[in-house]
Design a protein around this nucleic acid. Structure first.
Length: 547
RNA sequence: GCGCGCGUAGCUCAGCUGGAUAGAGCGUCGGCCUCCGGAGCCGAAGGUCGUGGGUUCGAAUCCCGCCGCGCGCACCA
């Protein structure tokens, strides 16, 4: 049990003797001002109403009853309207550091997921062009959310859904055919809603080379299949360059081939949720919170995208995923209600909030003080590949993760590329590299440092105490970020501890001090290195030994 | 018009799900290199938390109205 758990338990015990019913859960926080102590709680204030007593009076009573020694508390005091502030004994303060060294790469992990299965779907780009910056944000978010869940005990499956059927794919085929016609010296018109990027021409050239018998592109199906294959290959390469891999690729076309789309429509009709109108088949999604009913089968007999979407999510449920998380751009938010409505209408026991959605807002790319809107290959948008080529994978990942998903993101290319303190990702990596430098200069193998045996009482400066607390808080941080599906918490925390690390490094020396001081500081340096490395690893970013 | 998201320092954003004097980075200004990496450190200035109400011991945080910005409102995905 960690120090805060012990303290929390002691507070609950004390509250019970005051007549507080079961279920009261005191919140322990780090006070904003470290001079208030190591932990603070507003517990007494929350009890004021149910107990009908003054907060400070309750605080006094609680304070008197908490078994101080057991919880590792050195002193406690009451402040303000009724906060109880605790200052920990040195042993309790350093417990987290010792734990970090003992657990090393496993520090920060937990088992709250209970090995339950969860599918995280992200990117899911149509194979109609290179991945754009929005996909990049999704890739970073989805992959990091997956990592957070894995490290908190979930059995995660990363899934990419390929929309390889439908109008967009037809347009891709026709666009490619148009370029092939041009290559053959004929008039080629990109169809309405078609794709104008340079990459289409490249695909056409390759098709003509590899299919000399159909250099004009008359075989529509062959051209389309070729283009889809080429683009899937390109997207895979981009994702690989970004350090993202998927466990499964689910093809929309397979839903038609396996009859799952048809089956879903039949099931919805059997459930009595449909009606015919104006020659189309509608689903009463308004009964499930949608603002209007949705067409399932168009007048021409084909299905709208929404039907395979529902069928697809049924397969997630049927494949045993009782939890499903979709990472999508906010421009798709209208599908949320619809998909859930479709699943509810089926009435097969899927809970209302299934699947969960993590929506992210749009990305603006800035360079030289101006917004960048186009790339050479894709034409109308900036690609992930452009960014990776320009600033490197680590910086791209960090920049996509440093903001909360539901705020818009400005990607400053110049900042991401700069190799200085201005750039948060280099700043964090630098902190790790500097600590490595200490071990290098001291000719010490960091893996041999055994935190359990060293006297840590020399870690007594304010800076060191704050670092000890930060290291202690790391598992809580990971658990909180995982529960909220918010990777940016990790990114911000890393920046904070990097700042503390640089300040400490600059102010104090590790090597060449009195032996007991050096030994204690080596343990601290190792502990910081572990949380930096584990934290960066959560974001899929390197923790370099030197830069 | 309706739905979702967002308005916090000059700029870009945090704010741990209601707590103490609202924070960070960039930018600006001023300092610090015989010492484990100056690819760094220290300090200063800078805010009526869009706005008006409400809820309560206590609101940037929760509720309502208004203003502004983004996204979506297809028998496209």
């Amino acid at each position: 049990m960690s120090a805060d758990d012990l303290l929390r338990a002691a507070l609950i015990d004390a509250a019970r003797t005051l007549g507080v019913p079961e279920g009261a859960d005191p919140i322990l926080e780090r006070p904003r001002d470290p001079s208030f102590g190591d932990w603070t709680t507003n517990f007494a204030m929350t009890l004021a109403r149910p107990l009908k007593r003054k907060p400070r009076e309750i605080a006094e009573a609680l304070k008197g009853m908490v078994d101080i020694a057991c919880a590792g508390v050195a002193t406690s005091e009451i402040a303000g309207p009724g906060f109880i502030n605790f200052r920990l004994a040195q042993d309790a303060l350093t417990a987290g550091l010792r734990r970090a060294l003992a657990l090393d790469a496993l520090y920060g992990r937990s088992t709250t997921g209970g090995a339950r299965r969860v599918v995280v779907e992200f990117v899911s780009a149509n194979p109609t062009g290179p991945l754009h910056v929005g996909h990049g944000r999704q890739a970073a978010l989805g992959d990091t959310i997956s990592r957070l869940l894995e490290r908190t005990g979930w059995d995660v499956s990363r899934e990419f859904y390929y929309n390889d059927a439908g109008v967009q794919i037809e347009n891709l085929g026709r666009s490619t055919q148009a370029r092939l016609a041009e290559l053959a010296g004929l008039e080629g018109d990109i169809p309405e809603g078609g794709y104008h990027g340079e990459y289409i021409r490249e695909i056409a050239v390759r098709y003509a080379e590899q299919n000399p018998g159909d250099a004009g592109g008359d075989n529509g199906k062959a051209v389309t299949d070729f283009a889809v294959q080429e683009l899937r290959k390109e997207q895979d390469l981009d994702l690989q360059a970004f350090g993202v891999r998927f466990d499964t690729y689910y093809l929309e076309s397979s839903l038609y081939e396996d009859g799952k789309v048809e089956a879903t429509v039949n099931a919805l009709q059997a459930a009595g949720r449909c009606y015919e109108s104006e020659g189309a088949l509608w689903l009463r999604t308004t009964e499930y919170g949608d603002d209007k009913d949705r067409v399932m089968r168009k007048r021409d007999g084909s299905f709208t995208y929404f039907v395979p979407d529902v069928a697809y999510h049924v397969t997630k449920w049927e494949r045993g995923f009782r939890r499903a998380i979709n990472v999508q751009g906010a421009d798709h938010h209208s599908t949320v209600t619809r998909v859930r409505a479709g699943l509810q209408a089926l009435d097969i026991g899927i809970p209302e909030g299934y699947p969960e959605y993590v929506l992210h807002q749009m990305v603006t790319v800035m360079k030289g003080g101006e917004e960048v809107k186009i790339s050479k290959r894709a034409g109308s948008y900036v690609t992930v590949r452009d960014l990776i080529d320009e600033v490197g994978r680590d910086a791209v990942r960090y920049f996509f993760l440093m903001r909360k998903g539901d705020s818009q993101l400005v990607f400053d290319v110049d900042l991401a590329r700069s190799q200085s303190e201005e750039n948060p990702v280099y700043y964090i990596q630098m902190a790790h590299a500097r600590l490595s430098g200490i071990f290098r200069v001291g000719e010490i193998d960091p893996a041999t440092i055994d935190g359990a045996r060293v006297d840590l009482s020399p870690l007594s400066t304010d800076e060191e105490k704050e670092l000890l607390k930060a290291i202690t808080d790391f598992p809580m941080l990971v658990a909180g970020a995982a529960a909220a599906l918010e990777p940016h918490r990790v990114a911000n925390w890393l920046l904070e501890i990097a700042r503390m690390t640089h300040a400490w490094y600059h102010k104090y020396h590790v090597l060449g001090e009195a032996e007991e001081v050096t030994n204690a500081r080596l343990v601290l340096a190792r502990g910081i290195q572990i949380v930096l490395r584990n934290g960066l690893e959560l974001l899929g970013i390197q923790a370099p030994e030197r830069m």
